[in-house]
Nucleic acid binder design. Structure first.
Lengths: 228, 228
DNA sequence: GTCTATAACGAGATAGAC
DNA sequence: GTCTATCTCGTTATAGAC
């Protein structure tokens, strides 16, 4: 029985993966707004109703793709962090930034799915939150590890933001001064501004040597969060 | 005859505006990917073929909407700059940043159209470039005006980026040191990272007091380009 | 229990004849 | 410019194969 169950489970995993692969293909070709369960089923030689054994709805399929994209990016960031485990804080930070950029350049449509315009009529469920926060936590860890060093104290924080900053620090479980957490969240968002501008074409005719430019800007972000 | 021609011209302008208004409505409801000339025509009580007298194609209509969005944002940024003409460089910078954010929060779908994911199958023509560069030039002007002050010299620039930075400075017609131009382009992209994260939901459960957080981050960007 | 296939619904888009 | 016949879509109910 365990063999039969294993075979069934294996088949289920394979079909599920095939559905997501084909869905990703359509994502790249037509965009998330036009992702169609029927088209996915047709391409796989299945009937549309059969897909509902694997995903409860079109939005569920989208959610699965979103979570996988976040996880894939999170893994890439964590791998870069680990590969630079022995480096100084700033090169470790920039290594992760470059991994994020490389991932985005490699999977532009999945990047657009998670960091681009929201899909009309779709609202991401809370289930996406853990995967979405992985990249941020990689940066948080780098700053936390470097906390003993100098530099962090120089970050400013206006009085009106203090309570908000303390809440953010608590929510993130970060044993960091609120100045550092605020700077970190800002740098996190700014990093994706750099990546999005490159990927979405805003650097067209503005920045040519995008790799070097990005490296320089990422270093600036590292300094901005107090790394030295 | 001139009266008839004037009336015709006026009618043409009115119909063109009505088409764009309806298209913007659909943009908000269904997203740019599903913008359809037919649906626009139907909603206006016209027949789809009649629309082609006003826009040569769906992509042409999209281009017109994109240019208008860039221009509207550019005007908002310029107005904020002029309103803060007597302020010091940093508050002038943040005033423009806040105008950009306010514009985006007010017109999220037009913001997504120009700074969000590319529309599948659509490629923006060169005609969009002048409108797209207006916001950047506002920031460039603020930094140029403050150039005589201290601070700019402290900006670093790696040797590999020097020629790229000099080219950027020349392209932008900026009489600024290459360090400043590089920092400016980075800050420009990073600003839109902040706005996009807020607008596209990445700050959900992370940043609550978004207005104050943004104000603080925008000040940080001002310092990053050498303003004091 | 698990899966696939058939058929259908209501809504919307589309192509072409007129 | 209008109408109609024919597509697509998400989704569900149901029946039957393994």
């Amino acid at each position: 029985m365990s063999t039969a169950q294993g075979a069934r489970a294996r088949a289920r995993i394979e079909v599920t993966a095939a559905i997501k692969d084909e869905a990703r293909r359509q994502l790249a070709a037509e965009g998330a707004a036009k992702l169609s369960l029927r088209a996915v089923a047709r391409e796989l030689g299945m009937v549309s109703s059969a897909l509902y054994r694997y995903f409860a709805s079109r939005d569920d399929l989208l959610t699965a793709l979103i979570i996988e994209a976040y996880d894939s990016l999170g893994e890439a960031a964590e791998a870069a962090r680990d590969a630079a485990a022995d480096a100084a804080p700033v090169p470790r930070w920039t290594a992760v930034c470059e991994a994020v950029r490389a991932w985005a350049l490699d999977r532009p449509h999945e990047y657009a799915l998670i960091y681009g315009s929201p899909v009309p009529g779709y609202s991401a469920p809370e289930a996406t939150v853990p995967a979405a926060s992985r990249v941020g936590h990689v940066f948080l860890g780098i700053v936390r590890d470097a906390h003993q060093g100098p530099g962090l104290a120089e970050l400013a924080l206006p009085a009106v933001l203090r309570s908000e900053a303390e809440r953010m620090a608590a929510d993130l479980g970060a044993d960091l001064p609120p100045e550092a957490v605020t700077a970190l969240v800002a740098a996190w968002a700014q990093l994706f501004g750099l990546v999005s501008f490159e990927l979405f074409g805003q650097f067209h005719r503005v920045v040519e040597d995008r790799e070097e430019f990005f490296r320089h800007a990422a270093t600036g972000l590292a300094h901005g969060v107090g790394l030295r």
